[in-house]
């Protein structure tokens, strides 16, 4: 298990430093992303609220606008419809998009821009019939359009934020549940390995020491043995000599004589 949930690294001190650095980074990143997710969620909720609000009013306003156009058609007959349709030269309002930055997420924002296109022909549309109504309808639709563009911004913001929140949350979770534990495990593993190594080293040293000691002892023992051998040899030779002497008859000294101090011994005279 520990093998699965950790990085495949050589358990060295350098690696340990590197991993520790990474772990630190992951923790800090996690905190930051968490903050970002919170900010996004906050914004998301605000947007949602605004959308609901706008949508309820939009229904009303759109209905109003359409009805005011019906009024215009009623007042001006069918011809006014064509007059209006043909009266359009250039779009009076255009939608422009810009970007807004919320916690690093770029949210498109739409707003209407008056192109300032003169509606000269529109001015007089329905002069004979229903012109005032046409202008009213135009006002109503302008209002509706502003609201629509606002709603469009909000709606796209909603979708973008939703996506961003999901990504961020995924990252937060990944950091929290995968990367950080993995790194922690790795650190643990490396530390464990290092400890093991240390213990091994210690043991080895001890072993070496023990061996050395044993060696020394052995050597000493050997030396002692050699010395003992020499002595024995010497004693033996001494004894031989003594025996020789005895053999040669010049001493009644028996074996009970001091065999060791042969040199200083006065010859025994029988």
């Amino acid at each position: 298990m520990s093998n699965q949930n950790r990085l495949q690294v050589a358990p060295t001190v350098t690696q340990l430093a590197v991993i520790k650095l990474r772990l630190q980074g992951a923790v800090r990143g996690h905190a930051l992303l968490k903050k970002k997710a919170d900010a996004l969620t906050l914004r998301h909720r605000a947007v949602l609220k605004a959308i609901v609000e706008r949508k309820t009013t939009l229904g009303e306003i759109m209905r109003e606008a359409h009805f005011s156009w019906t009024r215009a058609r009623h007042a001006g007959g069918e011809s006014v419809k064509h007059a209006v349709l043909d009266g359009v030269e250039r779009a009076k309002v255009r939608v422009r998009a810009s970007e807004e930055n919320v916690a690093g997420v770029k949210i498109p924002k739409f707003f209407l821009r008056d192109t300032g296109a003169e509606q000269r022909r529109m001015e007089l549309a329905g002069l004979g019939r229903g012109g005032a109504r046409v202008r009213e309808a135009r006002g109503a639709f302008e209002k509706a359009m502003t609201l629509l563009s606002e709603l469009a911004s909000l709606q796209t913001a909603f979708v973008t934020l939703d996506e961003a929140i999901r990504t961020t949350n995924r990252r937060v979770n990944a950091l929290e549940n995968y990367v950080t534990p993995r790194l922690q495990n790795t650190v643990k593993y490396i530390l464990g390995e290092l400890d093991e190594l240390e213990r091994e080293e210690f043991f080895r040293l001890k072993k070496v020491q023990a061996k050395k000691k044993r060696d020394v002892e052995q050597a000493e023992r050997e030396v002692a043995e050699i010395v003992a051998d020499d002595e024995a040899l010497r004693i033996a030779s001494e004894e031989l000599r003594a025996y020789d002497d005895v053999v040669r008859g010049e001493g009644g000294r028996g074996a009970g004589g001091n065999l060791i101090e042969t040199e200083q011994d006065e010859d025994l005279l029988f």
């Binding site: 002069l127 004979g128 229903g130 012109g131 005032a132």
Partner: peptide
């Protein structure tokens, strides 16, 4: 009617 309507509808235009 024609005159009145033209008058009313021309308010606020450049006529």
């Amino acid at each position: 009617r024609h005159a009145i309507r033209i008058t009313v509808n021309s308010f606020g235009t450049e006529l």
